[in-house]
């Protein structure tokens, strides 16, 4: 409403493509709920009417990785599960972000044992480490806001796995429709 009221007379604004894309991208983060154990229940609680993740534009939890751009790894990752998590991460389209939700995802937490990976950053790039065992839903919302902040500041050239960094890569030319 605010923007429309502001643009009532002129009808257009000038901005950078980067800025407008980042703004659109950060306000509709689609999470991939990689619910493994206890934290998954708190992740479910974030979706419930009391905490309501829909306020942040992220209520669209997609269980297929192809439609997501934020992976919330919620729960203990064991050595047997690690290849699965990595595979799902690889299936997500770029750009993508990762929240390591909870102590055992971040560091192994209270599970000092033979079958638990002591921190998923051994095989995944992690953007946010979220403390708590499990973190309260409010805490996950905080992490989401931090991720949004990060997405808002990031330019396309800074994404992981973007071919722009390498020289000699030709991008397809943009088809600009010109009127008249």
């Amino acid at each position: 409403m605010g923007l429309e009221a502001y643009l009532k007379d002129t009808g257009f604004i000038t901005t950078q493509v980067n800025a407008i894309i980042a703004w659109a991208r950060k306000s509709s983060v689609w999470p991939m709920p990689m619910g493994i154990s206890c934290c998954a229940i708190e992740m479910m609680a974030v979706g419930d009417p009391k905490y309501d993740i829909a306020r942040f534009g992220s209520e669209v939890m997609r269980f297929t990785p192809r439609q997501c751009d934020l992976m919330i790894v919620a729960g203990t990752v064991t050595y047997k599960m690690a290849p699965v998590v990595r595979k799902i991460y690889d299936q997500m389209p770029d750009p993508k972000w990762v929240i390591a939700m909870g102590a055992c995802t971040s560091t192994g937490g209270m599970y000092r044992s033979y079958s638990v990976v002591q921190g998923i950053d051994q095989f995944l790039p992690v953007d946010i480490y979220l403390a708590g065992c499990p973190p309260r839903p409010d805490n996950l919302l905080h992490a989401l806001m931090k991720i949004q902040e990060k997405i808002g500041k990031t330019k396309a050239s800074q994404f992981h796995n973007v071919p722009l960094k390498e020289e000699g890569v030709k991008l397809p030319e943009l088809n600009v429709i010109q009127k008249n």
Binding site: I36, S37, C38, I41, G75, T76, T78, K80, M81, V84, M110, Y111, R112, S113, Y114, S115, V116
Partner: peptide
């Protein structure tokens, strides 16, 4: 099974009865 095998029984053998109480929370976490 086994994608969430965290080695509880081994851990219980290595900690006191009091120390294990927080671990029981995470067994049936509902």
């Amino acid at each position: 099974l086994g994608y969430l095998h965290r080695g509880y029984e081994k851990m219980a053998e290595n900690m006191s009865y009091y120390e294990f109480i927080p671990h029981t929370d995470r067994l049936d976490y509902i």
